[in-house]
Amino acid sequence: MNRIVIGSNSNDTNDLIKDELVMRIDKDTNVLIEDSPVKKIVFDVEDASVNILIIRNKNEAVMYDVNVNKGNVSFNNISYDSNNVTINVNLNQERSNILLNNSVVTNKEVAYDINVNHNAMETNSNVCNNGVTKKDGTIKFNVSSYAPKGSKDCNINQDSKIITLNKTNNNEIKPILLIDEFETEAKHAAFIGNFKASELFYLQSRGLTNKQAKNLLINGMLIGNLDVCFNEKETLKKRLNEEWR
């Protein structure tokens, strides 16, 4: 398994790469990108399994292009108070799959535009957006999945959830499914609101205080659902606890 690390505790790479970074990956690889100032990152995946973890803290707007030419990509993004993000996914060949986990905590307005193009048959996409808004935070998740005629036997899923911890916000989820092929399956779910009373009751009935229960639910929603290893999750949980309060 190859490993690529960009930005994490390394100012050298941040100084060298500013505008656009293109990664051509044809072997199974883990990629970690942390607080990178690069404005556009392109991942060209050729018949490989790739796990990407992007950690963003108060970063500028960024665009990611993920082009999959056969293979499995697990794209995990966690953002604290960062600017707008655009993610374009192209599933170009049969058996190209993407799992996209996007976790956002913000106290300002931020938009996530995610476009998934199923350019070949037998391609799968699963987009899971989880957001928490606090103070003046507003999140807009705009997710478009496109399956043109001929893209048979695709599975398309969108799940978006925003928990509002602030009173004033204009949170929005726009799940758009543009399906031009009968023999493909597409679905979506969207939720904006507070924690479910039944979940809080269940956790509190085991002795957790209201605050502990909410912390656990936020950790679970933003970190627990990421497709990263146990140690990485523990590190992210510690960081989340520092950042979101």
């Binding site: 039944s198 979940e199 009751f201 269940y202 956790l203 509190q204 009935s205 085991r206 002795g207 957790l208 205080t209 209201n210 229960a213 656990l216 639910l217 950790n219 679970g220 929603m221 933003l222 970190i223 627990g224 659902n225």
Partner: peptide, 28 residues
């Protein structure tokens, strides 16, 4: 409150236990 009652030693095994995504049994 519910949590105060639980900490007093009262426990309810529920008829339909909830599923909570992302929160592991161990963490909980």
């Amino acid at each position: 409150t519910t949590d105060e009652r639980a900490r007093k030693g009262i426990f309810l095994a529920m008829q339909n236990p909830l599923e909570i995504d992302g929160v592991t049994n161990a963490d909980f």
